[in-house]
Amino acid sequence: MTIVIAVLLIVGLSFLFTVGLRSGVAVDDGRQASNPQQRPVLGGSDPETHALQRFHIRYYTMTLLFVAFEMEMMFMYPWAVVFVEEGPKALAEMGMFLAILSVGILYGWKEGIFEWE
């Protein structure tokens, strides 16, 4: 429970600090940003449309591979704790597990999913 309290305390203080930065500034005369000020930075040009859009990411296949790989992490944590106890058996089993997963990376590499161009 102490952990949750500590986390909540830290988050609370950080939020307070950020709010304080925003409101505690005496020099800020509270002026709202005018319409010309709100224009996004394009070095003096005017955009035609909103920037938020269906953004075309190029690495989406990589993210799928990543999520699968990340799953495997969850097995590794308990494994690390008992590694010394279990000895070579643990090494062999995890080695096999990682080898299986590496095949996935090699396959993705072959298919060129780490490339933009």
Partner: peptide, 28 residues
Amino acid sequence: LTQQRLRTEAPDQLNWFLSIAGYLSVAA
């Protein structure tokens, strides 16, 4: 802190704040 805090056109103000405050919290 002497400069005006600007916003942009149709920003996600809540997430703008949360990202800054959250980054600090996670660091701490």
